[in-house]
Structure formats: structure tokens, C-alpha cells
Amino acid sequence: MNDGGPMGTLLAWRAEAERAGDPQAGLMALCTTGPAGEPDARTVSVKLLPGGRIGFVTDRRSRKAHDIAARPRVAVLFTWMTLRRQVTVRGEAVPMDAALAEPVFLARTRPARLGAWASHQSAPIDGREVLDAALAEAARRWPDGTAVPVPPHWAGYVIEPMEIEFVRAGRPDRLHDRHVHRLTGDVWERQALSP
């Protein structure tokens, strides 16, 4: 383990996955629950924030944003097959300060910034041509050489972890190393788990 606690270990494993060239190193599966209790999952890009915090960005009008507004408890799953490791974080998604979310938007490629204006994420559309037309309109609005501003519907969330579970797989007997850290007050308590 890492002396930075479970978040330190998670970040160390993620850095190791990046060095190993794992294609999933910068991704996580985000699981939410909708207003009526319906589960949903999708893959999102991991945003590393100051203080070793983990976040993600999305359209405030998206299904995931609506799910979080109704039920902020979430789970995220990191899977690094090259290392045979996975980490599950369970906690609460809280709104990211705009000062943190804006640089994430500005770090995107120009086409991705225009795409954020063109798409009303999760909304039904009549076909691809609707997106293509919206993207062309965004490109006309902000031609090459002009800055593409942060859309008003752009939002970020930070995961406030309450539980972090680690699995190190690869044993031929499938009795993998597995343990969970649960936050009690300000203290992380570690418990080994049977695989």
C-alpha cells in the first residue's frame, strides 16, 4: 500500500497503468441511480484535481447530471487489465468549482469544445445530420482563431469517497487480493475481503 492512504494508492495504481500503456488508464465507469431507482453506467474520462481528488465533467442537461441531482451517491470503477487490477470508489458526486471545471474545458481540442456547444447530451435527436448542423453552426459562431467559451451547461463533479475497494487479480487459483477502506469520521479503516 501507499502511505498516502487509499486515495494515494489509487493514484499510484493509475500512474502505473499509464506507464504500462493501459488504454483504460484515463477512464472510469460511472454508475448512477435515477430518480425512480433505475441504475445506469457509462464510461467517462477521469479528471485529476488538486489535492489528489477525482472528478469528471459533463453537460448539466445529461442523464448522469439529472441522476446525480436526484441521488448524488455514485460508484466509479477503474479497470486496468494490463495490471490485472481494479478499484471501486463509492461516494457522493458534488459540484466542482467552476474555477476547476473551466481549465478542463479549455484543455480540450477545438473540435471537442465546439462539440460541447453542438450537443444537448442525452437528448433524443432525429439523426446524425442534427448534430452535424449544430456543429457547423458552432463553427460559424466561433471561427478559427476565436476562443470557444465555456458553455453555460458545462459542469464538473468531484467524487467525495466514502469507500474504496482494491482488487489485485492474476492468481491461478482466483483467490485474488481484495480489501476495502471505509471512511469513519476522518479515519480510513481497512478490511480484507474474500475474493
Score class of each variant (00 low, 15 high):
A25Y: 00
P95Q: 00
D22M: 06
Q24C: 11
V46E: 13
L77S: 14
S194H: 05
T79M: 11
G170R: 06
T79S: 11
R85P: 04
L48D: 02
P95C: 09
D97H: 01
I68R: 12
V57C: 14
T9N: 00
T88E: 12
E16K: 02
D22A: 01
A155M: 13
V187R: 11
S194R: 11
R110F: 08
A134V: 09
R140D: 14
H66M: 09
R14I: 14
A101G: 02
A155I: 11
A36D: 14
F56G: 08
W117R: 06
P23D: 13
G26Y: 06
D173P: 06
V148W: 03
A134R: 15
I159L: 07
Q86I: 09
V87W: 03
D67G: 04
T82C: 09
L106H: 07
R42D: 13
S62N: 08
P23K: 10
V76P: 05
L49E: 07
S119D: 12
K64L: 03
S45E: 08
L49F: 15
P6V: 06
T58F: 12
R85E: 01
T88N: 03
T43I: 15
G26L: 05
G127C: 05
H120T: 11
R84A: 13
A69C: 03
S122I: 05
G185H: 06
